[in-house]
Write a protein that binds this DNA or RNA. Structure first.
Lengths: 191, 191
DNA sequence: GTCTATACACCGATAGAC
DNA sequence: GTCTATCGGTGTATAGAC
């Protein structure tokens, strides 16, 4: 995954900030150029189209998230691996809230030109959770069930994380983390 | 019992179907008119603007969801109330997937003219979960924590429900339900 | 590589006939 | 209440100077 610098970096950063609040379709190339401090012509020199610009943005962002999750799980097993993944995802959302908002709003859209790219990356990130779940309870669950449970955990962290950061930023990170862990530790439906 | 009938109903239905795949900003009034089988002028006779059209659409949809959740919880307590809520939300997502996709993509946006309307309705739906959670374990958790856990459950059901309906529709509803309930019953982090 | 200027299609909204 | 026709504004993308 290539890391960009210079003009491309400035354009991608401006694009992400704008898209997080206005959405992708609602973000114009004129606004991106202005925020990035370049002319519109430079946008099209560095990225062949608006679609390609957003495809590269999502590729970089979601790819980095998948890498973060892989690192967080490394060397850990069972319950410890899952707790580390939940914490790492929550921290990832906190440190790149713009990307998280963008992911939440784009992840279930099926009309984009970059649909297949985003689908593969999303699958990659979810697979880290699914594998950790499968390993935690070997033999007792099929792959599909582990995938669903991975979605369940991912959705829980994404939603409560954004709830915190967007609507209730005063709250402390550890409160959010504790509420999520409590939910999945049987605090809601357990015994 | 639909609040609207006739032309307004046709327009709202067409709007929802289009917006579920193309997003709100990506849906044009010309497309809505064509799909609804009316002329564009009729759109503006029945709804004063594009923003108002979508505000009424979300108001109707999310309001109906909140009512469904209230009914599902009625008369139930503790674990049974939470399980009923999870099942009702999953069924609501399945029977109105277009609305669920729209909610997922709009719920964390803060630049819309109808922001306050959607925020209030979202809060209403989440409050049903939060109250059920608070009641299930009285005294042990503050309101904020119950709200976070409500987001957690809501996000888990929304994400795994859409994962099922959008990317893996062959799967049976009860498998999805079982995976969610298992996750929150301690199947992931419990003992 | 980055700029300015512009082509040209599209979209939200309105006016007025029926 | 619904239609057709149209206006003004805006958006993506390109051409060509520097």
């Amino acid at each position: 995954m290539p890391r960009y610098t210079g003009t491309k970096r400035a354009i991608l950063d401006a694009t992400l900030e704008l898209a997080a609040t206005k959405g992708i379709t609602g973000t114009t190339m004129d606004e991106v150029a202005e925020r990035a401090g370049v002319a519109k012509g430079s946008l099209y020199y560095n990225f062949s189209s608006k679609d390609r610009l957003f495809e590269e943005l999502l590729q970089e962002g979601v790819g980095a998230l998948a890498d973060t999750l892989l690192e967080a799980r490394a060397g850990l097993h069972g319950r410890a691996a899952l707790e580390a993944l939940i914490g790492a995802l929550l921290d990832g959302i906190a440190s790149n809230t713009a990307l998280a908002k963008l992911m939440a709003s784009e992840i279930f859209r099926t009309d984009r030109t970059w649909q297949r790219t985003l689908f593969a990356l999303r699958h990659e990130a979810l697979a880290v959770f699914a594998e950790a779940i499968a390993e935690a309870r070997p033999g007792s669950r099929d792959n599909g069930t582990c995938g669903l449970m991975a979605s369940s955990v991912f959705g829980a962290v994404l939603m409560s994380g954004l709830e915190w950061l967007v609507f209730d930023p005063e709250r402390h990170r550890d409160e959010v983390s504790a509420a999520i862990l409590d939910s999945f530790s049987g605090g809601l439906l357990g015994d």
